[in-house]
């Protein structure tokens, strides 16, 4: 595998290029710059691409952490139930208060309750820690189904809010705003700083639980903290831009297949890949439809991510999970 100093600069360069393309490529030409185009630049384009990149980085980071904490290649915000329960909370806020500003808080609270429920079920159902992680994924999938049913119920009974809910659930980045960008940036920075501080403990989670614990890691405590952190990250993303599918699952696997399995490699490359991917998909969503229309980015993420993942499975399947 290539050393980090050879891997990170090209990834950063690619991200910067995509961000610049996202800023200057769109339905409205930004040159020559005047008062109107400057407003478009600072109030719409730059916030939008940063919002997309930070959301992508956050979802990819959450995916890496879920997969390490649960030792499961299928673990991400969806299979653990965090994204769906956050989405249900967001929809509930829309129909109860009819206003999008309370969506974030309700989505985070709902994801937190979902996490407690899934962890509680896993703890009761399994005697061994190994078993509890599998139970947790199964309970998370069950929670996703229940939350999906709850969302369908809300759509059926609150017709006035259906279009808002549907658009939000499909995942969109049109709600980009500087305070949200600040919050997402802070979440990514604080998470990475904490993970860097605990990196030797985290790397020991690559071993089986008994070896990790006997090597000095409080496995249960660390796994619990990781689980809380990732749930908050996913809920934050869902609350700001709806459900953006597949990125949290795909980006970590793609990063491992392309650049290696070391902890530092994963923690740096997966978020960079996630940021580049979502910024690129967002650009595509803005320019694909003729006549100035915009496609919800979640549609492209799921389609493009799925196709890219098929490609990886065919060509580098053996090196994705490393089993």
């Amino acid at each position: 595998m290539r050393p980090l100093w050879k891997t990170i600069p090209p990834l950063l360069a690619a991200l910067v290029l995509i961000l610049l393309a996202g800023i200057f490529w769109g339905q409205v030409r930004l040159f020559p710059l005047d008062a109107i185009t400057q407003t478009i630049l600072w109030d719409f384009r730059i916030p939008r691409v940063l919002f997309a990149a930070l959301n992508g980085a956050l979802l990819a980071l959450a995916g890496v952490l879920y997969q390490i904490a649960l030792r499961n290649p299928m673990a991400d915000g969806f299979t653990t139930g965090a994204a769906s329960s956050a989405a249900f909370g967001g929809c509930l806020a829309m129909v109860l208060w009819g206003h999008i500003s309370l969506t974030s808080l309700t989505a985070i609270a709902s994801a937190g309750l979902g996490m407690l429920l899934v962890r509680g079920i896993a703890a009761r159902a399994a005697v061994r820690e190994e078993g509890s992680r599998v139970t947790l994924i199964l309970a998370g999938i069950a929670l996703s189904v229940v939350a999906g049913s709850g969302i369908s119920f809300l759509k059926y009974f609150f017709e006035d809010s259906v279009s808002t809910m549907v658009f939000w659930l499909m995942g969109g980045l049109s709600g980009a705003a500087w305070p949200k960008i600040g919050l997402l940036g802070l979440a990514v920075a604080v998470s990475l700083a904490w993970l860097w501080h605990r990196r030797d403990h985290l790397a020991l989670l690559f071993l089986d639980d008994a070896s990790a614990q006997a090597s000095g890691v409080d496995v249960r405590g660390l796994r619990g903290r990781l689980y809380i952190l990732t749930t908050v990250l996913v809920a934050l993303s869902v609350s700001f831009c709806g459900v953006i599918g597949f990125l949290g699952l795909m980006a970590p696997h793609a990063a491992r297949a392309l650049w290696g399995h070391g902890l530092t490699v994963q923690l740096l490359t997966a978020p960079l890949l996630g940021a580049s991917a979502l910024a690129l998909f967002d650009l595509l969503s803005r320019i694909m439809l003729p006549g100035g229309g915009e496609l919800p980015v979640g549609i492209i993420t799921s389609a493009a991510g799925g196709i890219f993942f098929f490609f990886l499975l065919v060509h580098r399947g053996g090196s994705i999970w490393g089993k």
Partner: peptide, 23 residues
Amino acid sequence: LNPEERARHMAYLPQEAGLLFNL
């Protein structure tokens, strides 16, 4: 003693020691 303190003095190889990912 917390796990970190115990681990300074004792190493343990379980029967099914395994590894996630490919280091």
